[in-house]
Design a protein around this nucleic acid. Structure first.
Length: 873
RNA sequence: GGGCGAUUAGCUCAAUUGGCAGAGCAUCCGGUUUACACCUGGAAGGUUGUAAGUUCGAGUCUUACAUCGCCCA
């Protein structure tokens, strides 16, 4: 077995073997196996791996490998998303670099270019996922724009249309001037910024003026009313009168509505229905006119009169100057407000009137609410259910059309009627018969196709064998940041089209950030690039760090030193394997030997291993994977390796054949269980290590997940070993305090006692763990030996003859220190047990634990007191 | 304005039904003893944001407050 784990070589080889052996395919588990299906959140097809991808891959692969080992037909279905806006932007950038543009090359050519770009870039992300060890079924890989999924999208659209749940109409939308498309509410981020609040006098028809404030003076040109509060005494007389739009002098009504905040500014509000969502609602209510003053690129249109053609911000300045000249301005002041910005690109989005397609979402939302309320779908962590409910209860119709070229084209055709080019609309699979029909140019929001993902990837709307067997899926694992974008929409669409919840559990992970909560970014230089880590350290350390660094639903600041630690853990696993491997001899019977053949350390470690397995199972059941990983590491690194492996050397090197055999079997049994538990976290090193210990089965990836054996739980052995190991620590401490060279072997003396029996039979433990070569039992009637350091833990008490090293005064001081510590502990325990309420009301097991503790502490106290009396004054 | 989360060792994070607050890194003092220096023995470091409450017992449950972050309007 190689001295070190050559992860670079092994990872590539092992992954190829797994894939070639068909383990990634659910069929490997057999026809009868219960399915366990996870749909991979499809990364952008042209994307490149970042830490977020690495996190979801680590978590989903962990779940899939765990269930695969439990015998399920595990299917992790991978795929990529065409990512409308993101991809189109990249191709447009390419074209710009070539000195041309989307418009210049035209629709057909642009699409061809984008497909070409997809073909070139498309494999990147999936190749990178493989490097992380993702055990997904690549034979089932899908792409949101492939034929099957396009059919699903069209089916879904047509169905909703026929059910009257899709409509087209003029609405106020969030318009992205740079991208020249509508975006949905979710794609707009409100950013708190300091801007200028402009206050001016709105001229009224009667010559009066009314002070009004706005942060967007250019929208004055689109005002169609002034509004005041109906109960506002100051303005009663103005209600129903007219005002004059500054500069344009257009007449607009003064209306009353209790929406107006009397305490803001002057208490009067300008109303621009075509460029403000609240004003739009006011306009609907009061039947006000809508005047759009912006073009699609956010320059002013002809409605802006003398300002037509100016950019929105240039217009803002010019108009304000003109109003100043007209004596209408009052003041400008800094003002903190929320600016709507495009999630992609960050430009300021303008509310604008336009014709868009919408899904009437209410009926779908109701089903989605009911499914989670009824517990058909569980969200982990549960607190996100409240967020989910709140969003769905207040959901707005979903704007699904995008003025992009790259995407699922809306299957609608128009024909002119009565001068309206959109007078007739036809929705269907193919162009309608007859002349004059033109197909809709808009495409669908990317999330429309993503919403169908759990079932479209399995063949829907065709009733395929996969759909029958693997739908509904089980777990949806994804980031909490796309709960609304994606998860809620999948639930709505899944319930609507298949009448089944698309999954029974939603597991939400948090965002991974850098130290101090900063976002990872290339410009800040704080990015942890997953591929660099994999190149330098292998995939296992990255996966282990990501899984054990955080808890479900919580964001986490990833500490790079954790990667170092995980890397060392991989080495630790390898070295432990190496030790066991080099101490094997010939055929070995698998499994733990019968209890009668086991020594104390073996009974102890087998018992501890069962507790680990049971704990890990519990933690997996409640999705606490990080804690489970931590416990496996702690068991291996802090118990199995430093204690059992060390102690086992005695039996291996000096024991009888039978003792050697039994020890080997225990080593292998415990290590085997650890490797199995660890496999979902660190698939590569565990798979490779497993080959070097005796095992049954072709590969660890399909080995059975361990279950705790109650028969191996041994409370007595655990208690005895706990005492002995405590004694070991004490002896090590004493050696340290007396500066005894660690390599120097010393002897120990002990007075016989019941507790000493177990130790006397296991002196190899002291020999191996604290270099005590020999333990002599003193005659029962002998007094305390002189010139010795005394070590006391519970009922165990030993003496270390340290001739030449022992300083009486120092020893007394040490003993007094021990006594002081012990006294404090003893008092605490005594106080608890003196409390009648505690004894009466606490759980009996807790009380018993304290009683046992008291007994041990009292025993130790007695010994120390005796020793002090004998040695010191 | 409403909701959610966080606040624990210098830093990054844990802590299963309430039961002696733990890791990693960093710090200090030791050691290359035949699996591992990608190792190892030990030490130090905490009034768990503040103030009340419930309880025999609170990091954990309740209330209020503070600071930071996120979501929704």
């Amino acid at each position: 077995m190689p001295r070190n784990f050559d992860f670079a070589e092994a990872e590539a080889r092992i992954y190829a073997n797994w894939e070639a052996s068909g383990y990634f395919q659910p069929e490997a588990a057999g026809e009868a196996a219960e399915p366990f299906v996870v749909s991979m959140p499809p990364p952008n097809v042209t994307g490149s791996l970042h830490i977020g991808h690495a996190l979801f891959t680590a978590l989903e692969d962990l779940m899939i490998r765990y269930e695969r080992m439990r015998g399920k037909a595990a299917l992790w279905l991978p795929g990529t998303d065409h990512a409308g806006i993101a991809t189109q932007l990249q191709v447009e950038k390419q074209l710009r670099d070539e000195g041309t543009s989307r418009e210049a090359v035209g629709y057909e050519e642009f699409l061809a270019r984008t497909w070409q770009y997809k073909e070139e870039q498309g494999g990147t992300i999936t190749r990178q996922l493989r490097r992380l060890g993702a055990s997904c079924d690549w034979s089932r890989e899908r792409f949101t724009l492939d034929d099957g999924l396009s059919t699903a999208v069209r089916q879904a659209f047509i169905t909703l249309w026929e059910q009257g749940l899709i409509y087209r109409g003029p609405r106020l939308v969030n318009w992205s001037p740079g991208l020249q498309t509508a975006v949905s509410d979710l794609e707009v981020e409100m950013s708190e910024e300091e801007v200028t609040l402009y206050t001016f006098r709105y001229p009224l028809e009667n010559g009066e003026t009314l002070p009004v404030a706005t942060t967007r003076p250019e929208t004055i040109l689109g005002d169609t009313a002034l509004a005041v509060h109906p109960d506002d005494r100051r303005y009663q007389h103005l209600i129903g009168r007219q005002a004059l739009v500054p500069i344009l002098e257009r007449r607009i009504p003064i209306i009353a509505d209790d929406y107006v905040d009397r305490d803001f500014g002057s208490g009067a509000l300008k109303v621009t229905p075509a460029h403000d969502f609240n004003d739009y609602e006011l306009a609907q209510k009061h039947g006000l006119a809508l005047i759009n003053v912006l073009d699609k690129d956010a320059s002013m249109n002809s409605q802006a009169g003398p300002y037509a053609g100016l950019d929105r911000y240039a217009c803002r300045e010019r108009l304000w100057r003109d109003m100043q000249a007209a004596g209408l301005t009052v003041k400008t002041e800094p003002y903190l407000t929320r600016i709507p910005r495009s999630q992609r690109g960050g430009e300021v989005v303008e509310p604008m009137m336009s014709e868009q397609w919408y899904v009437r979402i209410q009926p779908l939302a109701e089903k989605a609410l009911a499914a989670v309320r009824a517990g058909q779908i569980k969200i982990v962590p549960q607190r996100f259910e409240k967020v989910y409910f709140h969003w769905l209860e207040n959901i707005q119709d979903w704007c699904i059309s995008r003025q992009l070229w790259w995407g699922h084209r809306i299957p609608a055709w128009y024909r002119e009627k009565d001068g309206d080019p959109h007078g007739e609309i036809y929705v269907g699979w193919d162009a309608p018969r007859g002349d004059g029909w033109a197909m809709e140019r808009d495409v669908l929001d990317t999330w429309f196709s993503s919403g169908l993902w759990p079932f479209s990837t399995l063949g829907w709307p065709r009733q395929t064998a996969d759909l029958a067997r693997f739908y509904p899926t089980q777990v949806m694992e994804t980031g909490h940041d796309i709960l609304f974008f994606w998860v809620a929409r999948m639930i709505m669409m899944g319930l609507w089209f298949t009448d089944k919840p698309p999954f029974h559990t939603v597991y939400l992970h948090g965002l991974v950030r850098a130290e101090g909560g900063q976002k990872f970014s290339k410009t800040l230089g704080n990015a942890i690039d997953p591929l660099t880590v994999v190149d330098q350290r292998g995939a296992d350390p990255l996966r282990f760090s990501l899984i054990t660094s955080g808890t479900p639903g919580n964001d986490c600041n990833l500490d790079p030193t954790r990667l170092d630690h995980s890397f060392r853990f991989v080495n630790k696993v390898w070295q432990m394997t190496s030790f066991i491997n080099m101490n094997l001899a010939g055929e070995l019977k698998l499994g733990a030997p019968p209890r009668a053949e086991l020594d104390l350390p073996s009974r102890w470690i087998l018992s501890r291993a069962q507790r680990l397995i049971a704990n890990a199972q519990y933690l997996f059941d409640i999705h606490q994977y990080g804690e489970a990983g931590g416990q496996i590491l702690a068991f291996m690194w802090d118990e199995f390796a430093p204690f059992y492996l060390e102690i086992s050397k005695h039996a291996l090197y000096h024991g009888t054949e039978a003792q050697q055999e039994a020890t080997r079997r225990v080593l292998v049994a415990v290590h085997d269980a650890c490797l199995r538990l660890l496999h979902p976290f660190m698939p590569f090193v565990t798979e490779e290590a497993w080959r070097y210990i005796p095992h049954a089965g072709a590969a660890l990836i399909v080995a059975e997940w361990p279950s705790a054996e109650a028969a191996l739980i041994d409370d007595e052995a655990e208690a005895q070993m706990q005492l002995i190991l405590e004694l070991v620590r004490e002896i090590r401490n004493a050696r340290g305090e007396y500066k005894v060279d660690p390599s120097r072997r010393i002897t120990a003396l002990a007075k016989p006692s019941e507790a000493m029996l177990a130790l006397a039979e296991n002196t190899q433990i002291l020999s191996r763990l604290c270099n005590v070569s020999h333990l002599s039992l003193l005659p029962a009637d002998a007094g305390d030996p002189t010139n010795c350091a005394s070590i006391v833990t519970g009922e165990l008490s030993v003496f270390l003859p340290l001739e030449g090293l022992l300083d009486l005064e120092a020893e007394c001081q040490r003993l007094r220190g021990e006594r002081g510590k012990l006294k404090a502990q003893l008092e605490r325990t005594q106080k608890m047990l003196d409390n009648e309420n505690f004894v009466a009301r606490a759980q009996p097991a807790v009380v018993q634990r304290e009683r046992d503790r008291l007994r041990d502490q009292q025993a130790a106290m007695t010994q120390i007191a005796e020793r002090l009396a004998a040695l010191c004054h």
